[in-house]
Computed example of a mutant assay.
Amino acid sequence: MSWNVTTRDVTEIVERYVERELRLVAEQEHREHMDEEAINALHDLAGLIYRAGFEDGMSVMSRRASERLVRERKQ
């Protein structure tokens, strides 16, 4: 099982989006209603994107640290 990592800010951004979409559904006939399954899928997607960014950031930090060590050894 893969756990999605997110922050309070990411969760709030998704919830604001959901609220906006639900409001627009009430105002416009052509918009489709978001059910709880779609909302949960949106939260999952946000978690995956956040985790990917976090992991990429950690990878970059590790690479920079490795390159710094190489430079220090050359001196």
Rank of each mutant, 00 (worst) to 15 (best):
I49M: 15
E72K: 12
L22F: 02
E19A: 15
M34H: 03
H33M: 07
E72R: 13
D35H: 06
E55Y: 06
R16I: 08
I39H: 01
K74V: 06
R16N: 14
R23V: 04
V25K: 02
L22R: 05
A46K: 02
E67N: 11
R68K: 14
R51Y: 09
R20H: 11
S62M: 11
E67C: 02
D44M: 09
H33A: 08
L48A: 14
L45P: 00
S2H: 08
T6Q: 04
R23Q: 11
A26L: 10
I13E: 09
I13H: 03
K74M: 09
L69V: 08
R63P: 00
Y50S: 05
R31I: 12
V60G: 00
V25W: 01
T11S: 11
R63V: 09
S66R: 13
F54V: 11
A52N: 05
T11H: 10
T7G: 07
L69Q: 12
V18N: 02
V70T: 10
R31G: 03
N4T: 13
V18E: 01
R73H: 13
V25R: 02
R8I: 13
L22D: 04
E15W: 04
I13W: 06
N4K: 10
T11Y: 12
E29C: 04
N4C: 09
L45F: 15
T11K: 07
E27M: 14
G53V: 10
V10C: 10
Y17H: 11
E27H: 06
H33R: 12
S66C: 07
F54M: 10
I13C: 09
R23C: 04
N4P: 05
R23P: 00
I13G: 00
G47Q: 02
R51V: 09
W3V: 05
G47D: 01
V10G: 01
S2I: 04
A38M: 12
Q28N: 14
V5R: 01
V14Q: 01
Q28K: 13
T11E: 09
F54N: 02
Y50D: 04
E15D: 14
L42R: 05
M61Q: 05
G57S: 14
Y50L: 06
E12Q: 15
D44K: 03
D9A: 13
L48S: 13
E37F: 00
V70M: 07
T11Q: 10
M61I: 10
N4D: 09
R63T: 15
